[in-house]
């Protein structure tokens, strides 16, 4: 059973819809005990960083997440969920889970003469920084749907999974042992997102 953590941060039904298409059993839950027993965990979310940190803590899920991460349970963070796994964010003052040596930074709007509208919204290709089973069987023309105003920057080269450029270069996914975080929305990225989620369910 895959636990999709519900901490009142945005629309998560679409993740479960895609898992259903993969014939993967999942449950949307805010119950720490259910999260504890899950074979894999998905931490989704859109919204503000501090709001997410506080909600995880007040629902008693933060501790369970640390416990399962240490125990080796595969965890996938999506968008805000991925950012919460970082050290901190310019969007807030509270510390993140600190699972990856990375900071969350506000997009600059101007880079030199050029303008880069924020939020960064739309479909973008990603460049691989290392190999991972998550990108097995991924078509060459794969593109993913992004919508975010803050980006992840890893401090350690070896944590980077895929990168993107939008005025500046940022890390659109990281992978550290049993933890993976993606800035884009696989659940909204049609067949490419489907392939990534299938790899997470079957192989990660």
């Amino acid at each position: 059973m895959i636990a999709i953590v519900d901490y009142q941060a945005g629309n998560i039904g679409s993740i479960q819809n895609m898992l259903k298409k993969l014939d993967a059993e999942s449950t949307i839950t805010s119950d720490p005990d259910v999260v504890r027993k899950a074979s894999k965990i998905i931490l989704p979310g859109v919204g503000a960083f501090d709001f997410g940190v506080s909600k995880l803590k007040s629902s008693g899920i933060t501790e369970v997440l640390h416990e399962r991460k240490t125990a080796g349970t595969p965890v996938l963070g999506i968008c805000l969920g991925a950012q919460l796994m970082c050290l901190d964010s310019q969007e807030g003052v509270l510390p993140g889970l600190g699972w990856v040596q990375a900071n969350v930074i506000k997009f600059p709007f101007h880079v030199g003469e050029r303008k880069f509208p924020v939020p960064h919204i739309g479909w973008d290709r990603v460049s691989p920084a290392k190999t991972s089973c998550l990108f097995d069987n991924m078509p060459d023309d794969a593109r993913f749907y992004f919508v975010h105003s803050f980006y992840i920057k890893c401090r350690r080269e070896s944590d980077r999974l895929v990168t993107n450029t939008y005025g500046i270069s940022f890390d659109s996914a990281f992978e550290v042992e049993n933890v993976v975080g993606v800035q884009f929305h696989p659940e909204k990225s049609h067949k490419f997102g489907f392939t990534l989620l299938k790899n997470f369910v079957d192989n990660f």
Binding site: G13, S14, V147, H185, S189, H190
Partner: peptide, 8 residues
């Protein structure tokens, strides 16, 4: 719609 369409 959300159940059947996997784009934003």
């Amino acid at each position: 719609i959300a159940k059947h369409i996997n784009i934003p």
